[in-house]
């Protein structure tokens, strides 16, 4: 198999990962529900992780934990380190987003972004006055 078919098979991982990434991006842009947007963001993120790990893969290699065999091939440890930390940072930032969603729901009673935006537009007039009230309440 020489030519474009072989080329596509060899970089198959990259192509599918791009499709997954775009699927995540599609969820983030098209869906109105904020929780679903966050899930889309998480999917996008995980797809990027798969891309990095695919780059680090070495044909015929094994996990980068040294063995006694001198001729052992190891996969590249550098992408593993980058993604390892990125996963934990990712869950922390997703949690931050989720906390914001909870606060949005508490303030507006809705987690659909079009409804929230409509409410904000309607409340734009008395908003300044309400800010003053809140100050008094505190």
């Amino acid at each position: 198999m020489i030519g474009p078919v072989a080329q596509i098979l060899e970089s198959w991982n990259y192509l599918v990962v791009i499709a997954l990434m775009m699927g995540g991006l599609f969820i983030v842009i098209s869906q109105n529900n904020l929780v679903k947007k966050l899930v889309g963001l998480a999917i996008f993120q995980t797809s990027v992780f798969i891309f990095y790990i695919s780059v680090g893969k070495m044909a015929g290699g094994t996990a980068p934990i040294l063995t006694d065999g001198p001729e052992t091939l190891y996969s590249n440890p550098l992408p593993h380190v980058l993604i390892l930390t990125a996963i934990v940072v990712g869950v922390a930032t997703t949690a931050l987003g989720l906390a914001l969603v909870l606060r949005i729901h508490a303030a507006f009673g809705s987690i659909e972004d079009d409804e929230v935006l409509a409410m904000k537009a309607e409340a734009a007039e008395p908003r300044a006055r309400r800010g003053g009230d809140m100050g008094d309440a505190v």
Partner: peptide, 15 residues
């Protein structure tokens, strides 16, 4: 499958 055992460990526990 891609030899990243540490990453797999983290992803399974965290993600």
């Amino acid at each position: 499958n891609l030899d990243a055992v540490d990453v797999a460990f983290t992803e399974a526990a965290v993600g």
